[in-house]
Design a protein around this nucleic acid. Structure first.
Lengths: 229, 229
DNA sequence: CAGAGCGGTGACGATTTTGTGACGCCGACG
DNA sequence: CGTCGGCGTCACAAAATCGTCACCGCTCTG
């Protein structure tokens, strides 16, 4: 996992509490005391997830969310909002404005971690440490290993990330550009055709066990990972 | 593609360079030497994208951006800012103020084009990815698959688009010209009879499962996709 | 029944897209 | 300081797809 998580929360005590939890769950927290600072930090380091307190001094949570969704680079970042129990209708408002989930304060450590994990799993599965497995092809991010039919496969770091992405996003076509954004990162500048080359390297690694069939070319569109044959 | 792009840049040499590149990438550049002129042109023709130099004589890039975001008509226009490598914190400032991306000078032709493409793509309305389904004929744009009776069909990109069009516009006759406009795109210059050929290719792909019956010829008018037999 | 008009069909060359092997660069490591 | 593995690019090969055409058969008309 090791997701970068931005915490936008004005109460120092809660901020610390959350940061501690996040860190213990293996993520990297980043703190902001208000919405403005939050937006600044978002631009600075494009976090993988944002924990957003709904009641903030100055710019409110909803305004924060609006601004976040407006900007092209940040519009896809998942957000979990933190609300007080009394703010029931705000909850709805938040979800309508593109929040991914919410937690009502006070919340337990366990609940927080569960939500984080759930949202990451849904929105950015390749960020999680979950084992992915299709038939006898198994990829384990924790140990950074791939095995097919019980045999370990040898692939480079890039091919690993590529396969991880595809296995967590099966049955869907991705263009070379999308793949570059997702696997290589946002602001990198690389030839599109480089994707082809890595696809090929990955295929040849998968070939001995026949799993290269799962990585299909969709002419004119991109590539697709399929679970069947 | 073919976007109207406003270039706000005071150095004539760079301005020309950018304009040239933009034009070669198939867009229409529009030039402004300073922020004031830029704002005027923005109001004049509402460009699809703005390339904004950060260091400008007179009104600065940030003021330009602020004014741009204030006006309702212009606040949605994506902006890519051009900064010198030394102006790291300006980069952040710009992003906070609603710039969509940045490029540090000096930049390569290819990088410029890549950034432009990326930003435009993010703003562009996504083609609907909803599954279309008639009985046991299913077309899924996300997967880029067509299946009939559960069996995958193999068709080329054009046939795919053609079928997608017909399935989303059933029970209606379209002339060859209309089909060309809708499926191939506006203003392409292609023989009308070419449509026939693709219809035929699509039919023969659909034939094994009998779904070719759904694609009917309307003599003297064009073609129609019908949901019944 | 002949002719005209229209759509179906198979073939073909051109073009576009993808696969592939090789190369040079660079940072990690010894 | 040299080696090595991995990465990004390129140029070329292979493959798939595209747009056109010529020809055919059918249908409608008069």
């Amino acid at each position: 996992m090791a997701a970068q998580i931005l915490v936008v929360e004005d109460e120092a005590a809660i901020q610390e509490l959350i940061a501690l939890n996040v860190r213990q769950a293996g993520h990297r927290p980043m703190l902001a005391g208000d919405a403005e600072e939050g937006l600044a930090r978002v631009q600075q380091t494009l976090p993988d997830l944002i924990l957003l307190d709904w009641m903030l001094p100055g710019m409110s949570g909803i305004d924060f969310l609006r601004r976040l969704r407006t900007n092209g680079r940040t519009q896809g970042i998942p957000v979990i909002m933190l609300t007080a129990r009394a703010e029931e209708q705000d909850k709805l408002l938040g979800l309508e404005h593109g929040a991914d989930d919410y937690i009502t304060k006070p919340f337990s450590t366990r609940e927080l971690n569960a939500r984080i994990k759930a949202v990451l799993r849904r929105r950015a599965p390749q960020m999680t440490e979950d084992r992915v497995e299709f038939g006898d092809l198994v990829l384990d991010p924790a140990t950074h290993r791939i095995s097919a039919n019980g045999v370990d496969l040898q692939v480079g770091p890039t091919e690993f990330k590529l396969l991880h992405f595809f296995m967590t996003h099966p049955e869907r076509v991705y263009s070379r550009t999308q793949i570059l954004d997702q696997v290589w990162g946002d602001h990198v500048f690389i030839e599109e055709r480089t994707v082809d080359v890595h696809i090929r390297r990955l295929r040849s690694a998968l070939h001995p066990t026949g799993h290269d069939r799962l990585l299909q070319t969709v002419r004119g569109s991109g590539y697709r990972f399929t679970r069947v044959a």
